[in-house]
Design a protein around this nucleic acid. Structure first.
Length: 572
RNA sequence: GUGCCCAUAGCUCAGCUGGAUAGAGCAACGGAUUUCUAAUCCGUAGGUCGAAGGUUCGAGUCCUUCUGGGCAUGCCA
């Protein structure tokens, strides 16, 4: 199916040719949404841009193009406005036809990717033996949303949770496990007990060098394959993963793989050997480094792939990971949803990958930080750090109070189900409706707000559509023609047509908030329609058309929210 | 020191490739409901887009400088 702006662009391009305008090489006419409803539905500034290049009067050029064009059946005669905008208002017939085709389309008007890619998305990546805190929601929710969108657009996506399951902290954990572990506490809440043990050992090791040394020894034994230590490590990882998975399940986020750092342990040495062999790895101050002398920004920023003590670090691990993803999964794109502080690291990794002769397309999808009340990044050690699970539970509890109040007759199970959809949805929406680059200060009230531009607002629009169909007796048959007369109907139809324009845009710059914004506008438009246009009390064609609009709104809201990872319920 | 990001209404934020009179939500005030679910709708009020220059027919958006924040800058990830 063809989107409305595509139809207009085609027609405008033809008009330019008809008007004998000189079109410079590479010039493409652009159609965008009207910035204001009184300008029509869509607008183009192409005449102004072209006039500038051709040194002509923009309004005259616009007029000539409009006069030369053939607009019948597509839109009303375009109007020239301001310095030379061409404003379009599509005809009711076209809009009606288009609405029906979106309604019938299995993808609600969202075009499929012209060239599907195999995309690896690397996101969330928590450390084991530590609880996920509020800072993890950005990578986790954005990554999950991009996964859903990319799949919806027809790409082959492989999600991989590159968990931090191998590192120096295991020396202390193993030492503490052997000495201080409370098995009962471990059974009750494994991560909490591991954190308790870790903190205790950490404090002890700081004060006592002998303890520190014992921790190092435990780590060395682990790395050398000591059976007991390996078993402790394995159990730690398993327990942590159980707990992480239960949170992901609750959030309806799934990964195809959980290949953490430990998985690549045996592959690190060979990577470094190969780098040395190819002349890319050089010794420097006892370490093996990759230098990027041809890249000005990185000229003085080598990547260390083997430390002076012979150990490897995360640059090595990431290179091994890339190798695996290319050779085993045939990745042609890799998206890293990781915070902005790691920019330099990824620049180095990407440059190294190019030097090694791989042409996989890699993107570091950065995001800002969640700050504490002191405007500093929330760190695990900070006292005011907020655990993710606590936020989720609080959100669901606050939602429950409202759900019970508004739906006293529903069963406990239904109330629980709705409360979870609302609470978890609100937290996800709070994150995803924000531009990913901006830093923001964590606020319970903002994160858990249910009023205004929030998930419950969108969910409520959906619930209103479902309520209408619940009241209908018998089966609904949707018409194969519709009429759009009232302003509310037309506005809604135009807004619905934009779903297919919005979804692909998300991946241009990896911006889930574009979808969130669109869905908010759709819900607003629907609420307006709902006030203005009674459905069940209307009759004939009007009623049938409105029912269809409601059903289409319902589908788009449900699908759109699903792309954000937010679930809808029929009541709330 | 160098590099990256950010600064928009009282508060929290949109504003994609420069486009028309800069928009939402929250908070404030005034209205609408014996409802197709008011978690809603309509209205009022609120701005020299951090500062100063520059490019352009046109700048919140691009360039330069400055101020104020955040982050990164070789052996933690």
């Amino acid at each position: 199916m063809t989107l409305l702006p595509q139809l207009l662009r085609k027609q405008l391009t033809l008009a330019l040719e008809e008007a004998d305008a000189e079109i410079p090489e590479g010039f493409q006419v652009a159609i965008s949404l009207a910035t204001d409803a009184r300008f029509g539905d869509y607008q183009s500034n192409s005449a102004m841009i072209l006039a500038k290049r051709l040194k002509q009067n923009p309004r005259e050029l616009a007029q000539a193009v409009v006069d030369a064009g053939e607009w019948d059946g597509l839109c009303e005669t375009p109007e020239i406005a301001g310095p030379g905008f061409i404003n379009f208002k599509v005809t009711t017939e076209i809009l009606q036809k288009h609405t029906l085709s979106v309604f019938i389309d299995g993808h609600l008007g969202v075009p499929q990717a012209a060239t599907p890619h195999t995309v690896i998305i690397d996101f969330s990546a928590p450390n084991v033996a530590k609880p996920m805190h509020i800072g993890h929601i950005r990578s986790t929710f954005i990554g999950d949303c991009l996964n859903r969108v990319a799949r919806y657009l027809g790409h082959k996506v492989i999600t991989d949770n590159h968990i931090g399951d191998w590192g120096t902290q295991f020396g202390m954990i193993i030492y503490g496990w052997k000495k201080y572990l409370n098995k009962e506490a471990l059974a009750e809440d494994a991560i909490r007990e591991l954190v308790r043990v870790y903190r205790q050992v950490n404090a002890e090791a700081k004060a006592d060098e002998a303890v520190m040394q014992e921790c190092r020894d435990e780590l060395v034994k682990l790395q050398q394959g000591d059976a007991e230590n390996h078993a402790i490590w394995q159990e730690t990882v398993d327990l942590s993963l159980d707990q992480l998975r239960s949170i992901y399940d609750w959030l309806d986020i799934s990964f195809d793989h959980y290949l953490g750092e430990s998985f690549y342990n045996d592959r690190l040495g060979p990577v470094v050997d190969e780098l040395i062999e190819k002349g890319l790895g050089e010794e420097s101050d006892g370490a093996i480094c990759i230098f990027f002398r041809d890249i000005p920004a990185l000229a003085e920023k080598p990547a260390i792939v083997r430390k002076r003590d012979g150990g490897f670090n995360y640059a090595t691990s990431d290179l091994a990971t890339i190798d695996y993803r290319i050779s085993e999964w045939n990745a042609d794109k890799i998206w890293y949803v990781v915070g902005a502080p790691q920019q330099l690291h990824f620049q180095q990794i990407f440059a190294a990958t190019t030097l090694r002769g791989n042409d996989v397309n890699m993107t570091h999808i950065t995001h800002g930080s969640i700050l504490g009340s002191n405007r500093k990044i929330m760190k695990t050690r900070d006292g005011d750090n907020v655990q993710l699970l606590d936020v989720l539970k609080e959100a669901v509890e606050r939602a429950k109070v409202l759900v019970v109040e508004k739906n006293p007759t529903l069963s406990d199970n239904e109330q629980k189900d709705i409360s979870e959809a609302i609470g978890l949805g609100a937290v996800k929406y709070a994150e995803l409706s924000q531009h990913r680059m901006t830093d923001y200060i964590f606020s319970w009230d903002k994160m858990l707000s249910f009023q205004g531009n929030t998930a419950p607002y969108l969910m409520n629009a959906y619930v209103r559509t479902r309520a209408i169909f619940r009241k209908l007796d018998g089966n609904v048959t949707f018409p194969d023609t519709i009429t759009l007369e009232a302003a509310g109907e037309r506005n809604l139809a135009i807004k619905l047509a934009q779903f297919g324009e919005t979804v692909p845009d998300i991946l241009n710059d990896f911006r889930p908030n574009l979808l969130a914004n669109y869905l908010f506008e759709l819900a607003q438009t629907f609420h307006g329609f709902y006030e203005e246009c009674p459905v069940l009390k209307s009759e004939g064609n009007t009623r049938a058309s409105r029912l269809l609009l409601c059903e289409l709104t319902s589908k788009v809201l449900k699908q759109g929210l699903d792309l954000l990872g937010i679930r809808v319920t029929d009541r709330m």
